[in-house]
Each structure stands twice: as structure tokens, then as C-alpha cells.
Nucleic acid binder design. Sequence first.
RNA 1: GUGCCCAUAGCUCAAUCGGAUAGAGCAUCGGCCUUCUAAGCCGAGGGUUGGGGGUUCGAUUCCCUCUGGGCACGCCA
Length: 595
Amino acid sequence: MSDSVRTVVRDLLRQAVTGAQAEGLLNQVPASIPIERPKRPEHGDYATNVALGLAKTAGKPPRALGEAIAKHLRLVGGADLAEATVAGPGFVNLRFSDAFWQRHMLEIRKAGKTWGRGEAKPSAKLCVEYISANPTGPLTFAHGRHAAVGDSLTRLLRFAGYDVVREFYLNDAGNQVAMLALSVWVRYMEAARAADPKVPEVAFPEKGYQGDYIRSIGRDLLARDGARWIAPEPPADIEPIKRFAIESCLAMIRATLGRFDVDFDVWQSERELHETGEVKATLDVLDQAGFIDRRDNAVWLRTTVLWGDEKDRVVVKSDGLPTYLLADIAYHRKKLARGFDSLCDIWGADHHGHIPRMQAALKALGADPGRLSVILIQMVSLLRDGKPVAMGKREGEFVTLDAVVDEVGRDATRFFYLMRRHDTPLEFDLELAKRQSMDNPVYYAQYAHARCASLLRRAAELEAPQFPLTKELARALTLPEEIAILRRLADFPDFLADAAAAREPHRLVQYIAELAGEFQSYYTRLQKVHGDSILPQQRQRVGDWHATWDWRRTAARLAWVEAIRQVLEIALSLVGVSAPMEMKRAETAEEADEA
RNA sequence: GUGCCCAUAGCUCAAUCGGAUAGAGCAUCGGCCUUCUAAGCCGAGGGUUGGGGGUUCGAUUCCCUCUGGGCACGCCA
């Protein structure tokens, strides 16, 4: 694998700064030299402000230092470096030669589907936990954002070279699932009573789960177990019903995730942590470490002394039952024991109060709290015609993820969930997501990919002669627009590494939109501004056209189009969105995804 | 009341570790199809980065304060 462009820039700058130091202009070479990509094209391909930073300690004007660095850059840059200049207060701007960028097309094509893949990182075993919804009902559109962010993040991390395990923590113990079981039993009784009026009438619990799916599970229970649970009171041992209810809800969740193309490696059951004694063992460890208090009939974790929490937190309630917090600590302890270098949890922003408690717990367990990073996902609001979709006030009335996918399709749903940074609230516009036009960024991106594929198809139909992929062929890419896109494709590996390190999968969507836009613009400008086209157009295909057409340049451009298509395909796949080979108007969301 | 997050063009959002003239898309207005897919492209207008103060050669970015939003403050999960 060749060096990334940024690695090349970094090496050049280091040599140049070292050269300036050898001249006696600098006291020392800084440990890291900042590299940025200038916003304005006239400021070059890459820039550094290192001269500004060093000016004070060196006691020299920044522009003088910049001149020295630029001079040394020109000495070490060779033919690849077209320009190294000083601008503004002392920025050093670098511009590479066209040949440098043209050469990258060959590398991109050689790498194919692996372009941008990071080398395996030996010390980067990572556990990412997300969604972790209670198995008490279908996933909602809010869970959808967690699913989209978590899944794309793990795809991105894996591609970037991290060893990632994807986990779903299943809260199948405690009050919530107990209430689920009770709700199902009551609906079961109602179903039985509908068939036989002699079955006693029972009241629905005050905080029971209201959704229709509970009725459906109740009917399923009746179909499976018959009259076994018919009684005026809930059964003393409701455990079998609970298991049935959890399995039913879990089946719904798995089905939803399946069609959303979201997969997990590990489903960790909370109940199992209790049954195997890991929760109890965790309490013992915390106790022996001296961070447990017993007062007011309960057991407390001293999070105030551990992490400056506002108050200590209860881990065993006065009724003797462990809290959710203790089980979650046990889960994290188990993850650490499994040898992960770092843990990443994706939670709803409403759980932010949970972070200091978990950090405190890790510290109590003797682990570096820095090994846990938490990504908080802000709320999603659904819009229809620019107005918020009204949520029912009654419990159990919510918009499911399935409903959103049914309406707008999987591709648009996944793309839209990633259009904003995870820490900003997201407005999900259903009408926009459904629209099959240029204002819908999903279709815009997919259209760009399809257009690339279409060009390659058309070339085959026209029996375009083949040319070997060589440096000489790549030299036919001379238009500024072609070089600019090559620059963006060449940057893809660095871009991915940054996005993965920052744990920000939404950047993929930005990259896709920018690359798609740049290509679409080129496609039209080539004709309108340059009076040219990649392939001979219909009106040009007269007489001896096949013999006189410049197939060599066409071959170079087609190779370049295929490079664009490849990168779009990779980026879209990391978002979980399909890369269609052609666009056809779809009547339904399903058809849109099939394309 | 306390803590966390946020405030950028009419709308939705960018802006890399504090950098150069704060950028896109939508919306508005004006252009471009004898088509390599117009599901596209080009152009124009639009800003005291919520207010005020501070640090800095330089602040959308860091600090303080005020205003206006969101969320959390349970022996729920």
C-alpha cells in the first residue's frame, strides 16, 4: 500500500522544517506539524501554519520562517511538488503537480474495493454497543437513528482497520419486562374471554404496555398454551409468559433490524448476567475496593468520591433487588475482562446523567475510565409537510422504525439519519426523503453513481477500444475539474481515517454529497463549457466517427469515471445505502431499494 | 434551582487543533435539453456567527456573563 497523500505532505514538511532548523532559524522541530486543507483553491492543495506557531519561540517574523520552509520544500519536493509558497501572515501553501494526482488514479483503480481501507491496528480491539432497547415492543424511529449511526460507525471502523465487535445489550430483567409479561397475560385473558364468556374479566395494569402488538402476543400465547394460564389472578410464576413475551418482542426487533441491514455480533442478556452470578460478583469487587456504603436499608456506590458525582447511587435497593446500574456495571466489567482496548457506548442524550456513574464504576473496578467513550445521540423529530408528526399521548402510540422504512425506503432512511452530527437534534422530513428529485440528497448521490455506471455501459455498447491503465493514459486527464476530483478521491483514505478516529460516520454522507455534486457539475460543464463529452454523442456518430474519435482520452476518462464510481460505492456501502447501476422511477419505497 | 448540550443566510446545516475573503443544500429570482439519463447544470441576491465583555498577531471556535431553546436531575430503565 502506498503512502496516503497526507503522509507524503507530512514527510515533506518535516524535511523542510528540519532543513530550516539546520540553517539555525529554529530552536527545534515541533513534534507535530499541523496540516490543513485550505478552503480556497488559490491557497494550494495543502497548507500549514507551522511558521506562525514557531515565530514566537524562534524570535523571527513568521513570513521569514515560512519563506525558509517553502525554500526547503522546493528542494525536497521533486517533480511532484508544483509549488510551495508563503501567503498571508505566514502560511506555507503546497500544490502538487497534475502528474502526482493523475498517478493516484492508477492506485485507486488498482486498490478497487479496498481503496481507503486502513491497515489493521494491532491495539485497537473495540466494543461498540448501541440501540440496546428494552425488548418490550417494536423499535421506534428514534431507535432508527441509533441503529443507523451505530451500524455505519462500526462499518467505518472496521474498514479503517479497527477490530470491532458489535453488541446489543438486552434489558430482559427488571420491572419493564415484568410489566410486559403482565400486559401480555391480560391481553391473553381478553383473547380467551372473546372465545369463551366464562373466562373471568381482569383489569389492564395502570402502567401496562398499550400497543396492539401486545394483543397479538396475547393471542399467540393462547394459540400456543391454550387455557393453561386462565385464572382470576396473574400466575404466581409468570416467568414462562415473560420469556414468551420477550422472545416475541425480540423477534420483531430482529426482523426490523434485518430489513434495515443492521447486524450484531453479540446479544448480551441482562438476565444472564444475574443468573451466572456476574452481577453479584461485581458488587463484591466494588465492595472489596472500598467503594460501597450500606445505609438507609440500601447499598450505595460512592460515585461522589470516585468521580465527583452529585450524589452516591443505589446499586441494591432496599427490597434486595439490584438496580439497572449494577447490572450495567457488571456488563462493562465483563467487556473489559474480554480484552477490549476500548469500549464505546451509544446512548440517547437523555442518558447523559449515566456517564459519570459509569466512569466512576470503571474507576472503582480499577480500569482507566478513559477506555469508555460515550456517544450521545440527540432526538429525532419527524416532519410531514414541514410540521412535526403528532405523537399520540397514550403510551404505546409511537411511530415505529418499520413504518418509516415502509414509507420512505431503507436507503433514504439510513441516509437521512446520518445527515446530521449525532450530537445535534435531527429533523427527519418524510416528504423530502420520499421525493425522487434533486432536492433529495439520497437520490442525488445514487444518481451520480448510476450515471458513472451508465457511462461505462454505454462505452461497451459503442465498442470503445480498450487501453492499458498506465501513467501515460492518465496524463490525458488534464481538465482542472478532472484533477480536482482526483484530488478528492486521493484524499479518501485520509478522510476515512479522520472520520473513524473522530467516530463521526455522518461525515461519509457529506463526502458522498460533495463528490456526487462535483461529478454532476463536471458532467454538465464538460459539454456546456468545454464543448466536449466523455463518449461520442448521437449527433457526432456520423460517417467515419469510430475511426476519428479520440478513444484514448475517452479511455482515460472512463477509467477515471470507474474510479469515482468505486469510491462512491465504497462510501455508500459504509452508510448502508445501495449503489444502483441505473436509476428508474420507482412507485414504492420497496422498488426504490431494489434499484 | 443545579448540571450537560445547543444558538451561524428566510429554512436545514458546514466550517479540521484558534487561521487566510464564514461555506453548502433548500427556498426565491434569472438562464441552460436537435439529451454520453434535465432524477442534471450555471448564475444572482441573501450574514454585526443570539447580546455584551475578555484572552490572542488572528475567535464561529477558548474563558466570563446575559438572553433564548433542549435534556437530565428516582431505591425507574
